[in-house]
Design a protein around this nucleic acid. Structure first.
Lengths: 300, 300
DNA sequence: ACTATACATGAGTATTTACTCATCTGTAGA
DNA sequence: TCTACAGATGAGTAAATACTCATGTATAGT
């Protein structure tokens, strides 16, 4: 069974309650003519006269008297449900729950979060570092920051910064590497989730990559960095993210070069979320921060 | 606050209950794509994700779980209200309540009503003879049959038959009237609601009407007919309505002529009622009966 | 590897909706 | 008698709605 439009039902409820078309028009911010049309349309659709027209007044007909109480309840139920949902959504919109890939979180985002808190003290950030895909939809994350090639279906993916990769190692290891071919004789630190990465790097330098003498697998770049700092091997890391260690001589860029990576950092969220104020706010803020970071100038 | 469309809410309710967009599509007789669009539209309008997309399934999100019970209640309330209204209306649609001008009722309609009952035994007719205007809207009449000039504002007025008027009287009076001018020397029977009628009739015959020697006022034509039959005076009456009395010599048409009246018989009802099956049925029936009546052939 | 399933998305289109504006009609009150 | 009030009506228009169709993507099952 097809229902009349919610708009005509709301018009009916208003006119019935106020016993006046013109008062209903005022309440609904439309002209009296619009109310008259809506009521008439509703009556024609239902095949019943809902109002008795009494010269300059209207009164509910018998059918209208029967219909009104239930219509009022139905409409108010839907209004309350929607209002509560928006309040619920509004509350949750004072919170921003995000999952961030660990390396980006520790090397760039966390040091900036104090600036966010100072700018938006009323907003509460909840952050989790993780590399697991898609859990944002299941664990109530508003957004995630991911390293990858994009795009993610059904998602908005906003490029945050591009990645470049350099072969870096502890200074104690550097004497044993004089050219790129020497790399495969050293232990290589590999990201288990992106195990083609070394090969891609070699190919970008027109070199043939072969199985290294030794390699260690890690779950993410943050762990690779730790191992690299302790001299466990050579790693492919974006120099901009380790600029302090490079400056302090704790690590060196073996060939003084960085190569465009096939992966980048993205802000990702479901398209259905894009009207949410928490997401819009955070997106605006993070883009502005990246644009304001001089070391990120060529990564945008 | 503006509500989402009832259609999108119903789609949400169906998909939530069935936990499946494609099953909802089946239930609602649309394509899965339509459901997907509707849900997405609703989510965008509300700024909240209502479903979690799980590979080939959907599940309600936290917000969806909160929204669903109230939406279900609201929709069912409106559906039940509308269904009951239609049932109420449907019951009342097995009944036809009408108010009919007494003369037409007794002279033409009542003798035909047996035919209506035989044709439509499931329909119940409730008839009241009255000449009071507009009460059909206040007393729950579905339609009225009125004599008048039309049109009636906000009403559908369907011409049933045209009226012609003849000067008629009892045979005992006829010898005293040899020409139209003689009429004013006789007692004239006057319809109090249409007191200009005699003057109109004189003027149609290019005669000057002046105050009669004697006149009697009546509330309606049926009463005028009774008085006329008893020899109380001369009346203006449509000969087609008194054809039996004329044939039996109980009355005579003094000048063997009838003049087009300025008033006719109409079926009248509010425009809002025109989709009602009882009205459509009765209107169809009465028009067919009038068309089938040979004596009404020149009155349609 | 192939097929079926189920949701997503973009483009397009016909229909419906939701008014406003201009005007009318019939009181009610001063 | 005139003015204000209140609902009715028709015409017109912009916007919204409600889909379908074609296609894509990602499993799940054989």
């Amino acid at each position: 069974m097809s229902l009349p439009s919610l708009n005509s039902l709301r018009t009916f409820e208003s006119a019935a309650r106020l016993k006046s078309f013109s008062l209903a028009a005022e309440e609904l911010f439309v002209s009296p003519s619009a109310v008259s049309h809506q009521i008439r349309q509703l009556e024609e659709r239902l095949g019943v006269s809902l109002f008795l027209r009494l010269d300059r007044k209207v009164a509910l007909s018998e059918a209208g008297e029967k219909y009104y109480p239930q219509v009022k309840i139905g409409i108010e139920t839907l209004l309350n449900a929607t209002r509560q949902l928006l309040e619920f959504s509004s509350e949750s919109q004072s919170v921003i729950k995000m999952s961030v890939v660990p390396f980006f979180a520790t090397r760039w985002l966390l040091p900036k979060l104090e600036k966010f808190r100072q700018a938006y003290p009323e907003w509460q950030l909840k952050m989790q570092t993780s590399t697991v895909a898609s859990e944002f939809t299941q664990q109530g994350f508003d957004l995630v920051i991911r390293r990858g090639t994009g795009p993610w279906p059904g998602m908005v993916d906003k490029l945050l910064c591009r990645e470049r990769l350099a072969a870096v190692c502890h200074p104690n290891m550097s004497a044993e590497v004089s050219c790129i071919e020497d790399l495969i004789k050293q232990p290589l630190l590999i990201n288990a989730k992106v195990d083609s990465e070394w090969q891609e790097w070699f190919e970008s330098q027109q070199r043939v990559f072969s199985t290294p003498a030794m390699s260690f697998d890690f779950q993410n770049t943050a762990q690779i960095l730790d191992a690299c700092l302790s001299g466990a091997g050579v790693a492919l890391i974006d120099p901009v993210m380790i600029r302090q260690e490079l400056a302090q001589g704790k690590l060196i860029n073996l060939f003084e070069l960085s190569v465009p990576s096939l992966r980048h950092y993205y802000l990702v969220y479901p398209k259905a979320y894009q009207e949410q104020s928490n997401i819009q706010l955070f997106e605006r803020w993070i883009c502005a921060e990246l644009a304001a970071d001089p070391l990120m100038i060529d990564r945008l």
